[in-house]
Design a protein around this nucleic acid. Structure first.
Lengths: 335, 335
DNA sequence: ATCGTCAATGTAAGCGCTTACGGTCGCTCG
DNA sequence: CGAGCGACCGTAAGCGCTTACATTGACGAT
């Protein structure tokens, strides 16, 4: 194991001062081209690489972005993280992963954001509905923030139009002649108005109203944004609504849960009930789930891009909205 | 935004030297209990938190673990990462995520491991078959290494017995009376002997031989360890083997791909062909895929635990093997 | 009373960089 | 021909901690 080579070693080898090495290697001006060449040559020859912590301490920058996420193994999150990671690496930035297992949304333990302090140059909030106080806490870190998936309107965010997305899903069902359409979504209580849960619920309601259908609370069921949440909500819905002919689930994973319940109860899909989800989960294809797809990887990548621009001080779009696409598959049909 | 409070501020507030603050806050000996109390009180009051880069620079430790992984959005990886992340956070460690999109395995671009140098106290290699030279490079980092999923025998690793796993899957099919059992696995070429691809292929072969069946190269098809890889391999298999009655796929995701192909071609499952996968993917339940399940989250968590022990210098098991479990579902039946 | 001992602190030298500031030198310009 | 000006580079002061080593008392032993 070769012993560590520092910036002074390079300086000595190149016959210049450490300051010049620093400038030369970082491409700063005020360095003669011939000198820079010589320094770079020496650096390569010695296999020099700056010590990150020393750079951070001296410069105040970490070249690291924090990824704040409630889960890493869920579809949206893992894909968005993947996209962000790639983009960050390309720019020479590192990704610090902070996954907070958020239990019950109500009694959720306060996130210890202090672990981020002075650790990152910016943070990407991935698919996480934060409370107002959490947002304030985040802002107190004093670094750029980008919200992926959903975020406060006044913040920089990269997302799809959740209202339109749910409306599209619902409209698809309406177009097929359904009217008794149940909605399976995330718990809207204690949510800020911009939460995905809230927006998608609104999209559903908007579509129903626009079709002249009355608001019917029986058609609404909630659960956590995952398969099991979808299961519970579906059970509720089936027990409450006898003439249900369709379900729009706010995520594919919830839809999968609903499909399970339907199958267990012998309710054929799309024979008796049509189901549409939201996300564009890879396995939706195999399962034959009609869905409104979004490109989570691209969202993550775009968010990372924005973040990098913000760090360099460039002005950025405060609100980047990605398109969604209805993917018709076997789980929906005319009523 | 309150201005940053440093260790000296705490020292002043507590009426001691910075050295004492450092010792007191880190629980080192040689600090009178009353002093420690006073220092802690002051630290809390001022909202002091040490600057990570300063700590790293001075101590040489980063309290950060690098997670090396080829993908984050695939089942095994996202789950293992999730498990590792949680365990690390509990210990106050950060997780630096390095996701390398490995393209073609043959011409894979050399991983730039230098980004890890002096950045991490250890690295977890998650579900990644590394070449001998990559392993050597990793070792040159001079930090503890733990391999999750598969790794060189002489290294510390946390994994399932891949040979036994594939054997179990195959045996299940044999027990059901199948003999024309195709195997869908990852490309075994250019792999080290301990690669998951190689071991699972061996498990399949062992089971077949043990059942007295001849080696039949026609029954082997390869692809990447994901859905599309499963698709291609399945297509190959179907075109080559007319009397195929069962398939063992080396991952659930590959099995899903195979199921798609079978369905597209009108081959009923398990009517004409039985399929068994490996992993325990959440959606295997919905899809009804028989599989040999492993607990990826637990693997990740255990690996993180080992890592932490290694960092503190404790001796650890060099080889932690987790159990697997056959989960019978609708995709397999008696021939 | 004297000395070693040991617990509890303080002192200060780094850790490996960045960067404000100063200095040199060769030119241009009035 | 001297002042002024850039271009280029070196000096050195940190950045905010950790830690080897020195220091100080208090105390029991001699």
């Amino acid at each position: 194991m070769a012993m560590p080579v520092g910036i002074d070693d390079v300086a000595r080898a190149a016959g210049v001062s450490t300051a010049t090495v620093s400038r030369a290697l970082r491409g700063l001006p005020d360095v003669r081209e011939s000198t820079r060449k010589r320094v770079e040559e020496a650096a390569v020859r010695l296999g020099y690489a700056p010590t990150p912590s020393a750079v951070s301490l001296a410069s105040g920058r970490t070249r690291t972005i924090g990824l704040l996420t409630p889960w890493v193994s869920r579809w949206f999150h893992s894909n968005a993280i993947e996209g962000a990671c790639q983009a960050l690496r390309l720019a020479g930035f590192d990704a610090l992963l902070y996954s907070f297992q958020l239990e019950h949304d109500a009694t959720r333990t306060p996130i210890d954001l202090d672990v981020l302090r002075r650790r990152v140059d910016g943070v990407l909030v991935v698919g996480m509905t934060m409370t107002a106080s959490e947002v304030a806490l985040l802002e107190s870190l004093g670094v750029p923030l980008v919200y992926v998936g959903s975020g406060p309107p006044e913040q920089v965010r990269v997302h799809v139009d959740d209202v339109a997305t749910a409306r599209l899903a619902t409209q698809h069902l309406l177009d097929l002649g359904h009217t008794r359409i149940g909605h399976i979504g995330g718990y809207p209580e204690q949510r800020t108005p911009w939460a995905t849960e809230v927006c998608r619920a609104r999209g559903y309601r908007d579509a129903m109203r626009a079709a002249g259908l009355p608001d019917d609370p029986d058609l609404l069921a909630y659960g956590r944004f995952e398969r099991d949440g979808g299961r519970r909500a579906a059970v509720e819905l089936l027990e409450r609504v006898g003439d249900l002919t369709a379900i729009v689930a706010d995520s594919d994973e919830m839809a999968f849960g609903a499909l399970e319940v339907l199958r267990e109860r012998g309710v054929t899909v799309p024979g008796r009930v049509s189901v549409v989800g939201v996300d564009g989960h890879e396995l939706g294809d195999l399962i034959g789930l009609t869905t409104v797809a979004q490109d989570a990887v691209a969202l993550g990548g775009a968010a990372a891009g924005l973040m990098l621009e913000m760090i360099t001080g460039a002005p950025v779009d405060r609100d980047v909205v990605f398109p969604v696409e209805l993917v018709r598959r076997a789980s929906t049909r005319r009523h």
